[in-house]
Design a protein around this nucleic acid. Structure first.
Lengths: 238, 238
DNA sequence: AGAAATTTTGACCAGTTGGAAAAATGTTAG
DNA sequence: CTAACATTTTTCCAACTGGTCAAAATTTCT
């Protein structure tokens, strides 16, 4: 799985050695952000990968640096050389996550027609649940804990995006192209139904049993959700 | 994993003092389960309450006995007197949880009509999300971690129940009372959409903003979901 | 190559963790 | 009232936690 790298210019690591000399200079000019070396980029990616594994499984508190270091195949102090605090790792992960996570919603096009747009939004979210379940769980874990480390992003970036798309949905409703209903809860229901397949994967598999719990479950889910969001459960005359 | 205890007779606490004398007797007769004292019942309840708080917020690994003890207003060793292991507390909680958690689905009546039944199932689940958010999060937390401590219950009790209700749904579909679709994913979608309001509460509130994030959100959600499950999003001629 | 910088390691630390043991204190049935 | 039991407190521990530090090993740059 490719690391969740999205942007390029990231906060440079701050090797501990960097001290006295900068102490004063920093107040005049921002500390020269020395470009990352090859090794730094590589190791950081390896660490973030490992951290995604561990954080998504145990949450922030339940994850340990030792564990992450082990998965990353390096010693704890070595890991701490790249990310001096546990929180740094988590912060980076969450920051990158939110960008990719919201991409599908961003793509929903006001100029398109509602059903193709909503349909492919659902598809994309479902694909993300299938292809990036750890990211989904990391996000869910943070939410369960009250989102202490990303509440701001939620209240600003996420909220703005949803507000914008809610307006788009309302426009469609005004045009009679979409049934009049609550656009926010509409979005929530898409999030909930799709992410469920990543976050509650064990349950889904266990309930479907060995027969239907295989890879086909995502296709089945897509078909079902399409039906649900289009027509609900009322039988239609044919 | 020990048998899924559900009934009233719970595993009695085993004070550490209980030793030699029982050692042999136990092989002949099951160790006399001495009824719980008043204090034992009370304290156990207090502990379970506190543990629900902490486990639901931090997950199993992230929660500490000290923390639970503090919330419960007692010392750690005192708490350990009632539940000699951290896992015991969690196990009890999960066991009791699953029973209450599945009650709404159990109530879905094969002899009723599909829409009233499904409708009130959704309502009940939504009420649970509103009234027992900690239970919902505890469950979600366990799921995210791969349900290591309850996988058996999921694979047996939960699966059987869902299988049964899926058959009920199929019957309704055969009778033309319900659109033909996947009954398992139908159930998943109800779980997902309702539990979302407990598990992702922070997000829901943040996105709805101070205006609409108040208590009314559950009523709005209920209305929206009813619409969704009944007719989907296609505008109906009127 | 050789100096300078970067990366890795090993030893270490103070605080926290789940839990044990035993002594001290309460409660209650006969 | 008192012996038997139930409860609570105090003290303790070994393993683990996030994190530090200086020295050693390696890479990079000239």
């Amino acid at each position: 799985m490719p690391p969740t790298k999205v942007k390029s210019a990231e906060v440079p690591i701050a090797p501990k050695r960097q001290h006295k000399a900068d102490a004063k200079a920093a107040t005049h000019a921002p500390p020269k952000p020395r470009p990352l070396t090859r090794i730094q980029r590589e190791k950081q990616d390896i660490i973030l990968e490992a951290a995604l594994d561990v954080f998504s499984l145990h949450g922030f508190r339940g994850a340990t640096i030792d564990q992450i270091a082990e998965v990353a195949g390096m010693s704890k102090p070595n890991l701490l050389y790249y990310f001096p605090r546990k929180e740094e790792i988590h912060r980076r992960l969450m920051g990158e996550l939110l960008v990719t996570w919201l991409a599908p919603l961003r793509e929903m096009d006001a100029d398109g027609d509602p059903f193709p747009e909503i349909r492919s939004y659902i598809r994309r979210k479902l694909e993300m649940a299938r292809d990036f379940p750890r990211e989904s769980r990391l996000f869910a874990n943070e939410m369960l804990q009250g989102a202490p480390r990303i509440i701001e992003m939620i209240e600003v970036d996420l909220k703005n995006l949803v507000d914008e798309k809610a307006r788009v949905l309302l426009t469609w409703m005004d045009q009679g192209k979409l049934t009049r209903t609550d656009p926010y809860h509409l979005i929530f229901s898409i999030w909930a139904t799709t992410q469920h397949y990543a976050d509650f994967d064990v349950q889904v598999r266990a309930v479907l049993g060995p027969g239907r719990g295989g890879e086909g479950r995502f296709e089945d889910a897509a078909r079902y959700l399409e039906q649900l969001f289009l027509f609900g459960l009322t039988p239609r005359p044919r």
